[in-house]
């Protein structure tokens, strides 16, 4: 499956881009994360939540092909 991943806040500096497309044979967010970590190992040291579509999800959730966002702690306002 082809999944578009967006990196927000500090994570865009760690990944050195805002957005990237990953290919994965996996079916869950955890499996996608393994693919992302292979390319950007430093992301493993960061704290973040994951959103699929516009909803926060857990690692075990199934990939739907919608946009995945890696969201570090929010700092609006």
């Amino acid at each position: 499956m082809k999944v578009t991943v967006k990196f927000f806040g500090l994570l865009s500096e760690v990944a050195n881009c805002d957005e990237e497309v990953f290919m994965t044979d996996g079916h869950t967010v955890t499996e996608l994360l393994q693919v992302i970590y292979r390319k950007h190992p430093k992301l493993q040291l960061q704290q973040f939540q994951i959103a699929q579509g516009n909803k926060l999800v857990t690692d075990q959730i199934k990939l739907t092909g919608e946009l995945i966002a890696l969201l570090p702690p929010f700092s609006g306002g």
Binding site: G9, F74, S75, G76, G77
Partner: peptide, 27 residues
Amino acid sequence: LVEEIKAKAPIYGKEIFEDESHQWKLN
């Protein structure tokens, strides 16, 4: 409302210093 916005909205602030260096804001 203000507390909810700060806690739940995926918004990010990058603090820019006068010397043009920066750090990511933490709430």
